[in-house]
């Protein structure tokens, strides 16, 4: 079937199989930041934004993005660098495989929640699994990042 999707500001038109997943579609367009970590919508590695809202691209059909706008980490280069620097300064990216999906959700949280508490942060991001870090370094990075953001720097 025919779809027309805007990915990171660029419009693509394709004839795709009806069962193609959004994750495979964005990867086929070179957006390799989105990863597959499970097949059961549990890990959060494939998180992208659909119309500005985070979705698990492994559980969304590509055709659902027809006439819509998809954002991956490749489209948020500056924001990724800005928050990523905080993560890097904690050593909390470790293997880095979960980082893009995690960062997509952190950036979505920043847009959605104002001054989130520690509990709200943990809950918002509970669907982003990480096996390396034990989550503490990620939390330190988020707090420092949000603090800087709230100062308007």
């Amino acid at each position: 079937m025919e779809i027309k999707v805007k990915i990171n500001g660029k419009v693509y038109q394709d004839n795709i199989d009806a069962d193609m997943l959004l994750l495979d579609y964005v990867r086929s367009k070179g957006c390799y930041s989105a990863k597959r970590g499970c097949e059961t919508a549990n890990c959060g590695l494939c998180t992208v934004w659909l119309e500005g809202k985070p979705v698990l691209s492994c559980s969304v059909l590509a055709m659902k993005a027809n006439n819509k706008e998809v954002t991956t980490l490749e489209g948020l280069e500056e924001e990724a660098k800005e928050f990523g620097a905080f993560l890097a300064d904690e050593g909390a990216e470790q293997c880095g495989f979960c980082s893009p999906g995690f960062i997509m959700n952190v950036l979505a949280m920043k847009n959605e929640l104002e001054n989130p508490t520690e509990e709200e942060i943990k809950e918002y991001l509970s669907g982003n699994l990480c096996r390396c870090t034990g989550y503490m370094g990620q939390l330190r990075a988020i707090k420092k990042y949000l603090e800087q953001k709230s100062k308007g720097e």
């Binding site: 070179g30 390799y32 660098k81 993560l87 890097a88 990216e93 880095g96 980082s99 960062i103």
Partner: peptide, 22 residues
């Protein structure tokens, strides 16, 4: 010292560096 990992910024910006990506 708490030195940043050499590959950190490539990883956090989602660059294609893993087996399937390349």
């Amino acid at each position: 010292k708490p030195i940043r990992k050499k590959d950190a910024m490539m990883l956090v910006t989602g660059k294609p560096v893993y087996t399937q990506d390349i």
